[in-house]
Nucleic acid binder design. Structure first.
Lengths: 148, 148
DNA sequence: GTACGTGCAAAATGTTTGCATCATT
DNA sequence: AATGATGCAAACATTTTGCACGTAC
């Protein structure tokens, strides 16, 4: 709670009830919710909130590097407040799970020192921190379910 | 060309001029184009083509496992006719590059035998063939540029 | 007090669908 | 001939934007 105020301050973000509620909800889950899902969650304690504000808040939080957008397969964007390097498993239906640490480390530890630098050199593109996603494609990869 | 007819037949897909043109264009590039981009490419040799047909064709090709959808960060879906296991680098602007083989193999070779099985066991979810995406997040992760 | 956030509604994207027509098997 | 693909336009889902008002600093 006070942590959030501090994070906002450090990031140069103004503190508002709505923003705090969105960020708190995002921090409280590891389900990588969509904007719509966050809207539903937050609306319970913040009834006046509008969906556009959720999007605005998430944009601001992302720009301030307090959360990240996750690539997902055609469906709505999912957000994650966990910025530590970890591994995501993207499911055919659009959900995103955190890969448990003991498996994630098998992937992360095997990346040689300087891998990102070599990648940058190869591709001619600044790469920054590297997110890792494992994309499951079973069963039959029909068009990913949109969660209407 | 005749290969495409054969692929379609094997997959139980009807052969049509439009579908062949879409698939040929997709096979001819490694730029992981969006439906819109394919539409532009194919329209030059197939002027009557409609965008909806491109989407329909890509759905059919994906269901038939002749191509795959790639997760991308909020922007339009990108498609890839290369189904071999390889590694993608997702750029902040939404583009997707193939990671060169010598770097990709550093990731792929380090996945222990049976990794996917353990992942399935952990997450309780059939995982199938595992796509791997490295997600670059530099520079400042502002909202990913939509390629209007 | 000023700069910035919010809420609403409308626009902009990206994708899907209904239906009449046409092509492939 | 029958099944399924195409093209068009309209629907739909997701995200962004313009503007009037309110709030944090």
């Amino acid at each position: 709670m006070a942590d959030i105020r501090k994070s906002f301050q450090k990031a140069g973000l103004r503190h508002t009830r709505q923003r705090e509620a969105v960020f708190a909800a995002l921090c409280a889950t590891n389900a990588h919710p969509t904007a719509e899902e966050l809207f539903e969650m937050v609306r319970e304690c913040e009834p006046g909130l509008s969906l556009a504000t959720v999007y605005n808040s998430l944009d601001a939080l992302t720009d301030a590097r307090l959360c990240q957008r996750l690539p997902s397969n055609g469906g709505p964007i999912r957000y994650d407040a966990d910025l530590r390097q970890h591994v995501h498993l993207v499911l055919p239906d659009g959900r995103v799970l955190d890969v448990p640490d003991h498996l994630a480390s098998q992937v992360l530890d095997s990346l040689p020192e300087g891998f990102a630098d070599r990648l940058e050199a190869c591709c001619g593109i600044p790469v920054g921190s590297l997110g890792i996603q494992l994309v499951a494609s079973e069963p039959i990869q029909t068009k990913p379910a949109r969660d209407h």
